[in-house]
Amino acid sequence: MPVALPLLEQVLPVLTEAEACEVPFQGLDTLWLQLTGTLCNLACRHCFISCGPHDDRVPVMSLSRIEALLAEAEELGVKEYYLTGGEPMLHPAFFDVLERVLKQGPTTVLTNGLLIDEVAAGRFRSLFERAAYSLDVRVSLDGMTAAENDVVRGRGTFARIVAGIHALSRAGLSPVLTVVEHSAGLAAEAARQRFLAFARSLGLKQPRVKFLPLVRIGRGARHTGRQGAEEAVREPVPAEGMASLQCSNSRLATEQDVRVCPILLDAPHARLGQTLREAHRPVRLRWASCATCVYEGLSCRT
């Protein structure tokens, strides 16, 4: 197995400013809030930002920071919001934050599902019904069996995630199941069909499944034994392809700064400023992980 690069090295740009394609910025449609920074109750082997239970290198967001970002987002006419982490439900005021964001626009929560019990599912349901805009919940599940899932998400997690999905289902919600193609068997079209059938078997009436390619940075790089360093976007990207890239109309905000995208949370050169306005400018495809978006069509959006 190849030796993994240290984390910092993995997120350094592989191209210079001059070498990399520029992605024009079309305005801020999607705002990602890194609600709990890198704090997570799991330490998945494929995590591209290497989150974990003791990881506070990116801090939890304060309510004042969230308010400031939302005020700016309102002025900029943001279309949709995503709450992510780490595990966003670990935020001490998670449901208050969710309710607040939903007043402003449609919101998707990306969760591992571990904290979804009957009470939490009921709160999601209540917000789903009451909010002015659409609420979506995305639960990560990396296999249809404990053996397939637990090898990456941790021992015993399959049963707990499925319990969370059941709770949502009983509350009348149909979460999106997010599956990372961490093994060859999950990357095929047939796997998608099997997963949809599996989602139905969990009681989801309107099942949706989102497959995500592996991003070869962070712990994900170690998991696959592959480094992104040999990959880079060296050819010009056609205008149509540019427009479908997340970085053309989306940004990630943390407690401390605003970044190019959720994948480049750790990349020092991906910091665009502290405010959304400062980040309202073109970026360049300098990182190895950019190849995943350009060539494999990765979009973190649902």
Binding site: E75, V78, K79, E80, G105, S134
Partner: peptide
């Protein structure tokens, strides 16, 4: 869509 088109947008 109605539910995904906020006023600000």
């Amino acid at each position: 869509w109605e539910s995904t088109s906020p006023d600000a947008f």
